[in-house]
């Protein structure tokens, strides 16, 4: 195979797209999920400030994964993009609105020093996070079923995805909210991981049952879906046990990656061969940047591990 053929291969393109989508789910799942749980894990204004400080600036580095995924779809797999948009148009509009609402809350929160302003922004963050997770659930159901309908399958699938986001957020909160003075929010989040893992496990199993019972997934490749679902179920089951809070950081990541992988591997999206020149062009620009991309992501991830004691730009 020549280099041009390698760069043009559908497998490589699909892997790149899959990587960005899964990266988004795993990384942004953390800050979206924690945003969802904010009312639950906080009680005082200072605790709310810490939650926002844990989400930002982390969200800056996680939402770019989705921006990149959209870019890959537009420039490298326009056919897939066409199908996805034709199927999902209304829910994508909703998703965009939720994204905007949530980010506006995050950007504006620390800008005005009044409790009314802050609670309005907190509301935007929480509502936006829930709406975002819900949109992802509906979008997944739409992709799996091949159309957007208000069926029992859509409902349970959405519930499963939402609970996976919440679980990821709780795991993230348990890790990042351990403050210098108090760790109450972190404890609450850690305790929530077990309960959320049970909810997620139940909804995932229910989704499978409904899908099989109603036979709504004609287009899905069964082997890959079964295997991946088994992985998610195992990860969730492990998290329901007494060591759940400790394991949750990794198990929640595995579990939330599964929906993305199921779409990538078992829905027939027919990624086409790239026109050779486009492949060479895109990859020759992308490859030299990869080290910088990784450096930035890892650096930010490590630096924000310690929670900010002092107010920063965002909170």
């Amino acid at each position: 195979m020549t280099l041009m053929e390698i760069f043009a291969s559908p497998l490589l393109t699909a892997s790149l797209l899959g990587l960005f989508v899964v990266g988004y789910l795993v990384l942004a799942g953390s800050d979206v999920g924690l945003g969802m749980l904010m009312p639950y894990v906080t009680r005082t204004p200072e605790q709310r400030r810490q939650v926002v400080a844990a989400i930002a600036p982390y969200f800056l580095a996680s939402e770019v994964w989705l921006v990149a995924a959209v870019g890959v779809m537009a420039g490298m797999v326009p056919d897939v993009e066409h199908v996805v948009i034709a199927t999902l148009w209304p829910v994508l509009v909703l998703l965009l609105a939720a994204w905007l609402l949530r980010d506006a809350g995050l950007w504006f929160r620390a800008r005005v020093d009044s409790s009314g302003w802050r609670s309005a922004c907190d509301t935007a963050i929480v509502a936006g996070s829930w709406l975002l997770a819900t949109s992802w659930g509906v979008a997944l159901a739409g992709l799996l079923a091949g159309e957007l309908t208000l069926s029992p399958f859509t409902v349970v699938c959405t519930a499963a995805v939402v609970s996976l986001f919440a679980l990821r957020g709780a795991a993230f909160g348990a890790e990042r909210l351990v403050g210098a003075t108090e760790a109450e929010s972190a404890d609450v989040a850690a305790r929530a991981t077990r309960a959320l893992a049970r909810v997620a496990l139940a909804t995932v199993l229910l989704t499978v049952a409904v899908a099989v019972g109603l036979g709504v997934l004609p287009a899905v490749r069964v082997e890959a879906a079964v295997l991946l679902t088994a992985v998610a179920v195992a990860a969730l089951a492990a998290t329901t046990g007494p060591t759940g809070p400790m394991l949750s950081r990794h198990t929640s990541a595995v579990a939330i990656a599964v929906p993305g992988l199921i779409v990538a591997l078992s829905v027939d999206l027919s990624v086409a061969q790239l026109p050779g020149m486009t492949g060479v062009f895109v990859w020759s620009m992308l490859l030299p940047t990869v080290p910088v991309m990784l450096l930035g992501q890892v650096w930010l991830y490590r630096m924000t591990r310690r929670p900010a004691a002092e107010p920063t730009f965002f909170a």
Binding site: A61, V64, G71
Partner: peptide, 16 residues
């Protein structure tokens, strides 16, 4: 295609 390159390289790195 240039927009795809931009989102993957420039935006990704800039925001991070």
């Amino acid at each position: 295609a240039p927009l795809a390159i931009e989102t993957m390289t420039a935006f990704f790195v800039e925001s991070t």
